[in-house]
């Protein structure tokens, strides 16, 4: 009896301590998202979200899936989804490769690692807008790339047009998420005992063979986890697309499409369509997160907790 009383008391205390967090999460994230999900299934053209100031109640819902159907069938929407998935996949793949190179170098060079870490951390400390505008200027017709290729070396007939291209957003996102990829990879390679490489070399394997036959197989689950993590972080980011995407006629990604539609709400488009986009983006992201957690738990049993969240 005394033990169950203690357990009950501990439960009460715990929920009392977490109540402010739980209320914030429910009130500011979960409830609005549920309202957004409800609205995405509504045929009503009213503004506002159900139960959060909107005119709709459950009775006025006029349930429909047409907003989701239009996401999958309209060419513009299909292009947005494909751009989003394509950019995220390319950024995740490139950063996995770059992360392997830099992360391994940092893990095996303890003397240089703090300096490299400090430099690589810069993009995560500075406002993302600064990083993206820096890249915009760097690649602009008057920036150093075009200055050298066009003015100095005269290798090209006209300055390269960078803004509004797929590659522009990829480069912007590479800069934004390089910190994450490199730090995660460095942690991963620090976990692999260098003695294994020594053993492989002593058996006659070349550096290349040791790397591809010993290190990479050991690191493979970690690489997969980093890939998924960067993929979902890139999917939800829109600063690079906003600045480097070239506007509505350029390359548009899913979060930017939502942002643009919110900005033009009342002029064009419907609230329910925005909500459907929001739900699609959230579901893909949360599914990615679930895959990431499965990989990390199976492969590392939470050993990477802390560095890879």
């Amino acid at each position: 009896m005394q033990k169950s009383g203690l357990i009950r008391r501990e439960t009460w205390l715990a929920w009392l301590l977490v109540a402010p967090f739980a209320l914030m999460l429910l009130g500011l994230l979960v409830a609005p998202f549920l309202s957004i999900a409800l609205k995405s299934l509504s045929g009503s053209a009213t503004f506002g979200l159900p139960f959060l100031g909107g005119a709709d109640g459950l009775a006025d819902m006029q349930p429909t899936a047409r907003h989701y159907v239009s996401i999958l069938t309209e060419p513009h929407n299909q292009a947005v989804i494909l751009n989003t998935l394509g950019i995220s996949a390319v950024v995740a793949s490139l950063l996995t490769v770059i992360g392997v190179g830099t992360g391994y170098f940092m893990a095996r060079n303890r003397a240089l690692a703090p300096t490299i870490s400090a430099i690589v951390t810069y993009p995560s400390l500075a406002p993302a807008v600064t990083i993206i505008f820096g890249i915009l200027w760097f690649m602009s017709p008057t920036g150093p790339i075009n200055h050298i290729l066009f003015h100095q070396l005269e290798w090209i007939d006209e300055p390269l047009e960078f803004s509004g291209t797929f590659m522009a957003i990829v480069i912007g996102d590479l800069a934004l998420f390089a910190t994450l990829a490199v730090r995660m990879m460095a942690s991963l390679f620090e976990m692999i005992d260098p003695a294994l490489e020594d053993a492989s070399s002593s058996l006659g394997a070349t550096e290349r063979e040791t790397f591809f036959n010993v290190l990479l197989p050991l690191a493979a689950p970690g690489l997969a986890a980093v890939w998924v993590f960067i993929f979902i972080r890139t999917m939800v980011a829109y600063v690079a697309a906003l600045v480097l995407g070239g506007g509505a006629k350029g390359i548009v990604v899913l979060p930017l499409e939502i942002f643009t539609r919110i900005q033009s709400l009342g002029i064009s488009g419907t609230m329910a369509q925005i909500c459907a986009f929001a739900v699609v983006l959230s579901i893909i992201t949360l599914a990615g997160r679930a895959i990431y957690l499965v990989i990390v738990r199976r492969a590392f049993r939470d050993r990477l907790k802390g560095e890879i969240l």
């Binding site: 967090f21 999460l25 500011l28 994230l29 609005p32 998202f33 309202s35 957004i36 503004f47 506002g48 979200l49 959060l52 100031g53 909107g54 979902i232 972080r233 999917m235 939800v236 829109y238 979060p255 939502i258 942002f259 919110i262 925005i274 929001a278 983006l281 959230s282 992201t285 949360l286 990615g288 997160r289 969240l309």
Partner: peptide
């Protein structure tokens, strides 16, 4: 749930908050 805000799309979070604080309760 502690890590949920870390992965939740910021644009969706901001959209929900915008509705609550500009037109909602």
């Amino acid at each position: 749930l502690v890590n949920l805000p870390l992965v939740f799309p910021p644009i969706v979070l901001a959209f929900g908050l915008m509705q609550m604080f500009k037109q909602g309760p």
